[in-house]
């Protein structure tokens, strides 16, 4: 199957992050239900949300609000129960596993909480891994810019075990950026970092949105982390309850206090790979 056939896009529409279409990813009436009968849990309840290009969005909410599930569903890591999700012009529901894998490879970047680098590869090899998988040569100019942006120039031949946590996470960010994806999903990227490294990393994310025109969606429960975003989407009980532009840490914290969060969820839900 040809690459174009796998991902129907508007002819001539640029694939890069600086494209003409304003929306990078969109969910419409997205629901996600786990279990059946008595153990049935609605993780996402008819969520509709858009992430615009070159915008840094933070998804916030108390534990169990469904923020990680939303990210997983939108990134094609998890199946959805109803509704629709799109990355660019591609409807995820129409893709089989093979094409979904290709879509993740070519159009989505990931940054995980637990760095998730391959210990056997050097920093540079980890960064270019998605390109290697795709069998493409990285764009050297772009690669240099990304590496400089995240400040890893001197450490490219190091293995992950020789890098600090902050450096490892920057490698993960560089890996996500190098393939010029449509959108990057970051799941608690600062969760395992000390506050200084965390602030640095968030700076880099911010920088890549502003300087490199990257689209980033970040799940977090840290109001300070959220304050680096252009926009914050609040989730509670599987619904979007509010949204804030130009957030500050204090404003986010105030808004959070009002959310109906904190109520414990069933273990079945917790077992579903949530990272927060």
């Amino acid at each position: 199957m040809s690459y174009a056939a796998a991902f129907p896009t508007t002819p001539g529409a640029p694939a890069g992050p600086r494209g003409g279409i304003a929306v990078a990813a969109r969910a419409t009436g997205l629901s996600k239900v786990y279990g059946q009968g008595d153990t049935r849990v609605t993780a996402l309840d008819a969520v509709s949300v858009e992430f615009r290009r070159a915008e840094f969005t933070a998804i916030m909410g108390p534990s169990g609000s469904g923020k990680s599930t939303l990210m997983h569903c939108m990134a094609g890591l998890d199946t959805i129960s109803s509704g629709s999700t799109r990355i660019g012009d591609t409807e995820l529901g129409t893709l089989n596993d093979k094409n979904l894998t290709r879509l993740r490879r070519d159009k989505i970047g990931f940054v995980f909480q637990a760095f998730n680098l391959l210990p056997t590869l050097t920093a540079l090899e980890n960064i270019t891994l998605p390109m290697d998988i795709a069998g493409r040569k990285p764009d050297q100019e772009w690669l240099d810019m990304v590496v400089n942006t995240v400040g890893l120039s001197g450490r490219l031949s190091h293995r992950p075990s020789q890098l600090s946590g902050g450096q490892q996470q920057r490698v993960a960010v560089a890996r996500a950026l190098t393939a010029k994806p449509e959108i990057i999903f970051a799941d608690e990227p600062t969760g395992n970092l000390d506050s200084r490294s965390g602030a640095e990393l968030l700076g880099f994310l911010r920088e890549s949105v502003q300087a490199l025109q990257q689209t980033i969606v970040m799940v977090t429960h840290d109001p300070v982390a959220a304050s680096y975003a252009d926009r914050v989407v609040f989730l509670a009980d599987g619904r979007i309850v509010d949204e804030m532009r130009e957030p500050t840490a204090d404003a986010v914290l105030d808004r959070m206090r009002l959310l109906p969060g904190g109520n414990p969820r069933t273990p079945a839900f917790d077992a579903k790979g949530r990272t927060s």
């Binding site: 894998t101 990931f110 995980f112």
Partner: peptide, 8 residues
Amino acid sequence: MLRAIGLA
């Protein structure tokens, strides 16, 4: 992770 970033 490899699966997530696109290894089939």
